[in-house]
Design a protein around this nucleic acid. Structure first.
Lengths: 339, 339
DNA sequence: TTGAAAGCGCTAACAT
DNA sequence: ATGTTAGCGCTTTCAA
């Protein structure tokens, strides 16, 4: 049984109230009493019951994050880093992090509702925003504190951090165009994800700018996993006139695409250029190292978390909508177009 | 303000107690009352305050997991999958998952203490067990419920799930020996991690069995990251007499090692064989695909979580110590030794 | 400077 | 079949 305020109160011969106030450093407690109480508390290894505190304060000091997992295998290096950023920041601000995993859909939304209504969390972090995002709609409508990593369509007055995907893809495309590529294939993300669209648009605008046309037959839809990238790249490279460059919507798919290219006898960086998005650590050590766009994912986790907690605490946010400028990372998976 | 039992009680004109009992389906409540209460509760969107329930029951229905993060960048695909396994199982058993991240050390242990004493969690899942593991010692001593993924030295009467690392490495080594390799290098894990030692021993016993000697100069110590694997492989391959095969202690390092090999002009699977451990999804799509040992990490997450919750609930565990037999996955990163 | 009392929302032992 | 009472451990009026 853990030590309670009552235990300390008995020990020092004061009331529970006084002990509580002493420990909170109220200034209507005599210095002697404070010292005595603190000493006793230390000695008895007192740690307040957070459940009791929470019930009384009607706050959980906990933030929630529901990871949208599709299959049972959920192995995205992207998220573990994001969790680390969020978790560390939350801890440093005295908050707990409640993590659930749920596939997108009705059950997912219920998880949000349940966690909110049962008072388990004081706010939510939303990841992988969708073009039509029920989660954001719901939280926005009910005015429950949340911060999103990513934007959504139709709503724009909520706090978020996002990288400028459009710009990122634009840079990547210009890079490929600059290398002489004109048949540029793409493996996009699931169309319901918000960034999929943004990224696709980024590619298109770069093409248009140099007078090229976007060719839908060169665009495959992937599922953000290596396997997905592998399969889709295989299809693209098996075309009669395969593209000379492939833009994948994230690093994981790009790595899968490289694997497919290798298997089909292409030398990546020479016969075929491949690009990713995210700059996960793996990208630096793939073969060849991957040209991509960096997302400071750990930092984004920290930012999102800090914004959310400040929001919960009712503090003014310096910025409520942060769009990060993407940084192109050129490595060896892209090379000049050779006839 | 969320609906409370009192709200319902007022609405149906019964006492709070009766409402509570009706909702819990006690059989000393009349069917009519039950129906009435349930109807009202549904209509009012009643969801019990978990904080209040927890305070009363003195249980948090929450399990904790402290991820040992070393640097700020923590991008291990292994863990996100493990979290998914744990999280899904926890949810299905009505428990929450509290995730923190903390670098190994005193602060880490304090996190355990704090979460326990403040009643935030009812049990812990320990990952990446160490040869001398203060966490396990502490939990074991205080008899706080926990289940470890991995074993430790000196203590053997606690519940865990582990893969037989020794056997896994033994299989991998035999595979390489069978291909004719005799100069086998290795990139081990941090010596404080329990499996590092087990894995190393697995390699040694395979070597000894065929009359070869373990050569410490061919063994480098890595940090489980790609970069670590890259750096250490670079060193090994720059020796006057480089090894013809490299066993890395996990897939991430193996991928880094492949990258280094490529850079130094080796063709992996021909000039040099490289193996990993874990069989993360990436391994299937590396270039070349990686020979490794499979760990069913999602399933392990589920198993560990289920064991823990049963332990918390005071149920008899079917098995308290599970050692999984490893499965060798031969791909193209290993090939016959050629003079 | 201190303490008594109320209450956060719930469950459960004990009446009736 | 239902209600009364107490209490989980804490914070916070209010009174002394």
């Amino acid at each position: 049984m853990p030590t309670t305020l009552e235990d300390i109160a008995k020990r020092v011969g004061k009331s529970i109230t006084t002990v509580s106030r002493a420990l909170h450093d109220y200034d209507d407690v005599s210095p002697e009493t404070k010292a005595m109480v603190r000493h006793a508390a230390d000695e008895m290894g007192y740690i307040p019951s957070s459940t009791a505190q929470r019930l009384q304060k009607r706050r959980s000091d906990t933030i929630g994050m529901v990871l949208p997992t599709f299959g049972p295998r959920f192995s995205d290096p992207f998220f573990s880093e994001f969790i680390a950023g969020v978790g560390n920041k939350a801890a440093s601000m005295g908050h707990d992090l409640l993590v659930s995993t749920r596939p997108p859909g009705e059950l997912e939304l219920q998880t949000y509702r349940l966690n909110i209504q049962s008072g388990r969390v004081d706010g939510f972090i939303i990841v992988r925003t969708r073009r039509v995002d029920e989660r954001i709609k719901y939280l926005h409508e009910t005015k429950f504190p949340f911060v999103a990593f990513g934007r959504t369509e139709g709503l724009d007055d909520f706090p978020f951090v996002d990288e400028d995907s459009h710009q990122g893809m634009y840079l990547l495309s210009k890079h490929l165009l600059g290398l002489g590529h004109t048949r540029i294939g793409c493996i996009s993300g699931p169309p319901e994800l918000n960034f999929s669209n943004q990224r696709l648009e980024g590619i298109k605008s770069a093409l248009v700018e140099v007078g090229l046309e976007y060719d839908p037959t060169l665009c495959q839809q992937g599922d953000m996993t290596q396997s997905g990238g592998y399969i889709k790249a295989e299809e693209l490279l098996s075309l009669d006139q395969p593209p000379t460059a492939i833009i994948a919507c994230n690093d994981l798919m790009a790595l899968g695409a490289m694997s497919a290219a290798h298997k089909l006898g292409f030398i990546v960086g020479q016969d075929i250029s491949i690009t990713g998005f995210d700059d996960i650590p793996m990208s630096e050590h793939s073969h060849p190292p991957l040209t991509t766009v960096n997302q400071p994912i750990y930092d984004i986790g920290e930012m999102v978390c800090e914004m959310l907690i400040n929001l919960i605490l009712g503090q003014e946010l310096e910025q409520t909508q942060i769009i990060l400028k993407p940084m192109l990372v050129v490595r060896q998976s892209t090379g000049e177009y050779k006839q």
